[in-house]
Design a protein around this nucleic acid. Structure first.
Lengths: 154, 154
DNA sequence: CAAAATTAAATTGGGCACAATGTAAATCAC
DNA sequence: GTGATTTACATTGTGCCCAATTTAATTTTG
């Protein structure tokens, strides 16, 4: 007893494969995002803001949080750093002071131009057939939907 | 220009699917590991130590780091917390004082007993066919091997 | 309308990740 | 065998994550 147990073997933990690959992929993004002076979570936030489009209704903190599954404890300081860098403005909504609207600045939009090449450069660097990645992405998204659609412990 | 761009759409980023699913799965572990009073990275470290077996040569900090792809900046404080909790001993190797050996204590081995049920309980809670998870894990591991076998930007 | 409940962010605190640097011990090179 | 490298951890500092709490504004209820 109290010895090796295949059930507890690291290589049998689905979680570890996910954890390790996530960090390995993030590490591949790092040098590319360093050119934009963005961290990986900051890049994701900018993607959400860019996605809203310039003309559309600006995103709220909670919109970004819902999209990225992050709460204000993570987002508030991150957004303040992006604001200090001049990439966006955080402003309280006049008719509902609880809400903070996030508006990319001109510099924020200019950064989008530089960011456009990131996905392709990443894919190249990975050295994996795009089809294979697309298939994986579909599966990951599908599983995420399953997890988000069921209670944390049915 | 400077508007929506399918290349930058969040839903097209393989990275985001990986990032979001990893956090969702970790969140599923959290209540189970809370019963053991372990965080998720602490759980992974204990898995490595348990895997070594009680009779075998004890693991070094760098062994755990190599297995989990974590450096001493992450591991040292984490291991100190596990030591404070009485789950392991950190002791310098006599014939090479640079090396720190990690030895699970009796409490550390007892915790393995409680941990044995974690994987099955997690799988149940996910509500996904085990075969599907096994297939995903194979793919994740295969991709991790590819990334670790190639330069960070070929 | 006033009290209670809800909502949106912010704050606080603990614990990862990771880059960069520091420190001491062991090994190598001449 | 001594100086230069290398190795193994530790430390420092920045930036996530997340739980729990707080604050302030809005909405709901009686």
């Amino acid at each position: 007893m109290a010895q090796k147990d295949p059930v507890l073997a690291l290589d049998n933990q689905i979680c570890f494969a996910l954890y390790a690959l996530n960090r390995a992929v993030t590490a591949r993004y790092r040098p590319l995002l360093a050119e934009l002076e963005l961290t990986y979570p900051q890049y994701l936030v900018m993607l959400v803001l860019w996605e809203q489009g310039a003309g559309a209704e600006s995103a709220r903190v909670s919109d970004v949080g819902a999209r990225l599954r992050l709460d204000s404890g993570t987002l508030t300081p991150l957004l303040k750093r992006l604001e200090e860098r001049g990439l966006l403005l955080r402003q309280r909504q006049a008719d509902d002071e609880r809400v903070v609207r996030l508006l990319p600045t001109e510099a924020g939009w200019q950064l989008q131009e530089k960011a456009r090449q990131v996905p392709a450069r990443l894919m190249c660097g990975l050295g994996v057939e795009p089809q294979r990645l697309m298939a994986l992405q579909q599966e990951l998204r599908s599983l995420l939907a399953v997890l988000e659609g069921s209670a944390p412990s049915d």
